[in-house]
Design a protein around this nucleic acid. Structure first.
Lengths: 106, 106
DNA sequence: TGCTTTATTGGTAAAAATACCAACTTCCCA
DNA sequence: TGGGAAGTTGGTATTTTTACCAATAAAGCA
């Protein structure tokens, strides 16, 4: 079995993705780099809230940022995070399927 | 972009994996079904704590359980969760690489 | 039927995560 | 060089998560 320390490192990365807003940000960045203001305007949340979500993603190594004049550009650093979504979809589909089995075989 | 509701559903599944103990449990279950007592004895935690972690995984649809006499058997329901680990490893490696770049190019 | 083993549930205290407002830093440009 | 635009940081209240202990439920066995 993996060590607790290894599990802590892994879970810190997974935890960074474990929030709907951060998931939507990652989804947004899949189509390429975005300015902070573009990301921010996709939500009805305070800009400081978005800034902190981006910091969480950055500290996990999932996104990176660079300054460009006034603006801050954010970029998806590890494209494979989209692999997560494939499996998450599989879990959701499996859940639906099993619930149906339950309904038909109570 | 995905909807907030879709993102909430996805993040609830990712959140279930966002804890070192639950990650270790999933890792343990990759080699096959395990009794509760086997899982429990892999940790120095109260059995109620382990039971609650298993409940989180179960409610997310990641594991399932069945009774066998005295014992409760837990099983990994969606093997693809191991896909997560591949990407997590990639993130970790990328983080290490970039930190080295930093060290060599300060 | 009572007893024991096995696991879950209830309750609670402590820690972590989240969102907002306000204040601050940076950077461009007039 | 001072004003404004763009983001970040600090501070705080609220919510969520987590771990323990104690009590409860389920199932085989004496």
């Amino acid at each position: 079995m993996i060590s607790f320390q290894e599990a802590e490192i892994r879970s810190s990365i997974i935890k960074a993705l474990a929030h709907p807003v951060r998931l939507m940000i990652v989804d947004l960045l899949q189509s390429g780099e975005k300015q902070f203001s573009e990301i921010n305007s996709a939500f009805q949340l305070d800009k400081s809230t978005i800034s902190k979500h981006l910091l969480v993603l950055k500290e996990a190594g999932i996104v990176s940022s660079r300054k460009d004049g006034h603006d801050m550009i954010y970029k998806l650093e590890v494209p494979c995070v989209t692999d997560f979504f494939g499996c998450v979809t599989a879990v959701i589909e499996n859940n639906i399927r099993r619930q149906q089995v339950c309904l038909f075989n109570p």
